[in-house]
Nucleic acid binder design. Structure first.
Lengths: 158, 158
DNA sequence: TATTGTTATACTCTATAACTATA
DNA sequence: TATAGTTATAGAGTATAACAATA
């Protein structure tokens, strides 16, 4: 009976409507949550044009210096060809560089530039603040529980 | 300690990588979950080309006969203009009809057709089975808890 | 032959702005 | 003037297929 939103209300212009079975569906809840969080992320982050996808790529390259494009594609659930445009954007802004891998000259080793590192460092507190805002109605135990439950969903492979 | 996936592994081709801070971020977890659920939904549902969005529109129109397009737009978090194409698809398949509202001749009252009702009735058990599959690692209390926590996130308005 | 990255291309989804018809 | 729906249009994001270089 908390201050929650079990009956799901979305701000609607005129008289309110009923959502039928939708609020019972985890897929629907997730979709609504993700749309809202995506919007909040984009308005919370100072760097223009940095989306959750680009931020995720920066984090992964930072955590795995020299990783290959195919590995990045797997990690962010995109096709190889889609990763090309992600990296084109990051490289155009001077945040990432593609270095021909000496041991396998088909592959590119990905690295943050100094500027990429600087931007990532400035983004992290902004993203943490954004997360804090989204989660502000949940106490630490509830946040941990939410993480854990999301991690146990059974998801279709790419 | 459960059978969970706290450390987040995504099937990756070569040597595995580390995800850095991403697994701590609720936005990242939600995005991964939503991509996987969307894929599972589309392969689970027999009707071709029925996406979660179209299914949601059918449920809402069924639950609110005569609702207006603007109300539907608010409910599914789309612009008025985007709802036009949603309804065009549903109407082209004979599932929904737009009836000029007599009390306000600018507006359309939305209704399921007999065929729309029939298709919705056949979709519901498929969607329930899909949800059951996604949630199969969670017991009833955990499912309820997940719903409740998702409902308490603070989301940006449209 | 298989793999890595790239290109060309097309498709879907969505929003913005301008339009129409009603109010 | 304001509202409901539509259209035209453009942008972002993604995938598929074919290609070059390398293994």
């Amino acid at each position: 009976m908390g201050a929650g939103n079990d009956n799901l209300t979305v701000p609607t212009s005129a008289e309110s409507i009923t959502f039928g079975m939708l609020p019972e569906l985890i897929g629907y809840r997730l979709r609504i949550a993700q749309i809202g969080i995506f919007r909040d992320f984009c308005t919370s982050v100072d760097e223009p044009e940095i989306t959750p996808t680009l931020f995720g790529a920066l984090v992964l390259i930072d955590a795995n210096p020299g990783m290959k494009q195919t590995q990045l594609a797997d990690a962010i659930q995109l096709d190889r060809s889609s990763v090309v445009s992600v990296l084109d954007k990051l490289e155009a802004r001077g945040l990432v560089e593609r270095v021909r891998a000496p041991e396998n000259r088909r592959a590119n080793a990905l690295h943050l530039t100094t500027e990429g590192r600087r931007i990532l460092d400035s983004l992290i507190p902004q993203v943490r603040a954004h997360e804090e805002r989204v989660l502000r109605n949940l106490d630490p135990a509830e946040r941990a529980q939410l993480q854990k439950l999301l991690g146990r969903l059974v998801l279709a492979a790419g």
